Simulated scan of single mutants.
Amino acid sequence: MALLGDGFWPFTASLILLGLAWNALYVGGSHLVGASVPGRGRFRAQGANEFFVALAATAGALLAGAGLALVGWGALNLLAIAAAAALGVAVIAVARGAAAGGGGSQEPATSASVRPSARPS
């Protein structure tokens, strides 16, 4: 959308799409962090996640002007597309590795899944 130009409507549409994507990913990511860490460590993990999200947003805001001045609007958007594509490939590779048994956590045995041993009579 942003490659259509830097006029009012392409820029406005890009910001709306960015806001929708940011909110969906932020809420989903926060849920995944909270759900993946058990017990009291969950709060520390969520705090660390919030810190790094804020750090990345601050760095992006500070570097946006310099990037725009150095390479221009079109090239900056192409770099963003390339970065998103690289992250997408990495996510797919990790997901395929986990699905093939190369990662992920395995469920521990529970008392319902373990057969009781035969008692001598």
Results as ranks from 00 to 15, higher is better:
S36Q: 07
S36P: 01
S36T: 12
S36A: 11
V37F: 05
V37Y: 08
V37L: 08
V37W: 00
P38W: 03
P38V: 08
P38A: 14
P38E: 09
P38T: 05
P38I: 03
P38S: 13
G39I: 01
R40D: 07
R40E: 08
R40T: 05
R40G: 04
R40L: 00
G41M: 00
R42L: 02
R42T: 00
F43S: 10
F43A: 10
F43D: 11
F43K: 02
R44I: 07
R44C: 00
R44K: 13
A45C: 04
Q46I: 09
Q46D: 04
G47N: 01
G47D: 00
G47T: 02
G47F: 00
A48N: 10
A48C: 03
A48D: 07
N49H: 11
N49Q: 07
N49Y: 12
N49W: 05
E50C: 06
E50K: 05
E50Y: 03
E50T: 11
F51L: 14
F51E: 04
F52P: 00
F52H: 01
F52Q: 02
V53W: 02
V53G: 06
L55S: 10
L55R: 12
A56M: 08
A56Q: 04
A56L: 07
A56G: 10
A56K: 01
A57Q: 13
T58A: 15
T58V: 10
A59F: 13
A59G: 11
A59I: 15
A59T: 14
G60H: 03
G60W: 08
G60E: 08
A61H: 02
L62M: 15
L63I: 10
L63R: 01
A64F: 13
A64Q: 02
G65T: 13
G65Q: 07
G65V: 13
G65H: 10
A66Q: 14
A66W: 14
A66N: 14
A66Y: 14
G67A: 13
G67T: 09
L68R: 12
L68G: 15
L68N: 09
L68Y: 14
L68S: 12
A69G: 10
L70I: 08
L70Y: 07
L70F: 07
L70C: 04
V71Q: 12
V71E: 04
V71G: 06
G72P: 00
G72L: 09
G72M: 05
G72A: 06
W73Q: 07
G74E: 15
A75M: 10
L76I: 05
L76C: 09
L76N: 12
L76S: 15
N77Y: 12
N77W: 11
N77E: 12
L78K: 10
L78W: 13
L78N: 03
L79F: 12
L79M: 15
L79K: 07
L79S: 14
A80L: 13
A80V: 13
I81T: 06
I81P: 01
I81W: 05
A82I: 04
A82T: 09
A82R: 05
A83M: 10
A83D: 02
A83N: 02
A83L: 14
A84Y: 02
A84M: 14
A84P: 03
A85E: 09
A85Q: 10
A86K: 06
A86L: 15
L87Q: 03
L87C: 15
L87G: 11
L87D: 01
G88F: 00
G88M: 07
G88T: 10
V89P: 01
V89W: 04
A90G: 01
A90K: 03
A90Q: 03
A90N: 08
